[in-house]
Design a binder for these strands. Sequence first.
DNA 1: GCCATTATATGATGCATATCATATTATAAG
DNA 2: CTTATAATATGATATGCATCATATAATGGC
Lengths: 199, 199
Amino acid sequence: MRYSDTHKQETRKKVVKAAAKAVRLRGPEGVGVAEIMAEAGLTHGGFYAHFPSKEALVAAAIEEAFRASAQRFEKLTEGLDAPAALAAFADAYVTPEHRAHPERGCPIAALSSDLPRQGPQVRAAYEAGVRGLIRRIAGWLPTQEPDRESLAASLVAEMAGAVALSRAMSDAAAAGRWLADARARIKSRMGFDAAGSQS
Amino acid sequence: MRYSDTHKQETRKKVVKAAAKAVRLRGPEGVGVAEIMAEAGLTHGGFYAHFPSKEALVAAAIEEAFRASAQRFEKLTEGLDAPAALAAFADAYVTPEHRAHPERGCPIAALSSDLPRQGPQVRAAYEAGVRGLIRRIAGWLPTQEPDRESLAASLVAEMAGAVALSRAMSDAAAAGRWLADARARIKSRMGFDAAGSQS
DNA sequence: GCCATTATATGATGCATATCATATTATAAG
DNA sequence: CTTATAATATGATATGCATCATATAATGGC
């Protein structure tokens, strides 16, 4: 073996990371193979030594994006008890920072409407990521909650929907205020606030 | 004037309607000018007699999609009092039918993640549509609600997010069950259920 | 230092697509 | 019926992109 045996894997990783950013920022159709390779410091030619197709790269990019987001939030919530973890999650997710940086944010908010139009590999990667996030949030919900998975899915829908909607608002200040409102509503639905909380 | 003076306007309308479907189904980048013209029964050549650019068409298509959705829901809720109208809205929006037919559904759910990547005309059309829907829902919310616009926006985020997420689920039956759950949660947040409802 | 082999680069191909220039067709007025 | 003109079609251009064939460069073992 001539090159160090980790060399190819390392470049592959670089390419995938570049793709993970580019795809969230410009969308699966908005980004080209050559562009991603260039961002990873390579030219387009070597691409097919790493991936059988563009779709395979996009699928890998989505996996990577979910993995990185999960890691980010794990770090953010480690050592916290369940209510604090949930609150910390919402406080990080439903924010102007997340709105401003899709390229390092949650793939659900960044790609929700692109997804139905992607091929099966991409959809599978995305679906697995969604399920993983829902499961993580469900695990933090109070055990007396009758259907934690269902509530978790509903919370994910609202959080991702809120960030996506906020990205459609052109006025950043107004978007920020609205995100703060949405954040408060979401936290109050998480089941740990004063009694009386519904659903 | 040789052709009847409404002829061009009529074809324009046909083109915009075709575009409104195609854009929601295949996305702004997934659809071509020639394709849309063909769906309207024309060839691609005449296009620039109607629109100065593809972006202008996409913007018009989004306006049309919002207009049609608004009309649809107006018909659905006419004559109902506010609580019934809200419930009818949620019962029509958060459904497997909506999940299955983005091409005649809400542009918010169909295009949320594409939007930040579009040009200013398209974004303006979308933003106006979003604000219109939020305003309509806010008008149905109970007057004692402290901030109806904010709650309405939150509800729109959750409804659109729920439909978008459901479209990422490959198992239609599971998606349907989950949509039913989400629908119940959304209706219970609309402020007209048994006392004790929060936020 | 040289060789075999693996990784990346150069360059080509074919296809799709936005845009535009020019030709053709349809129709209302005379 | 003829004609002027508005509406649409045909065809061309240019560009961008996924994919692939072939050439070059990098590196560990001898």
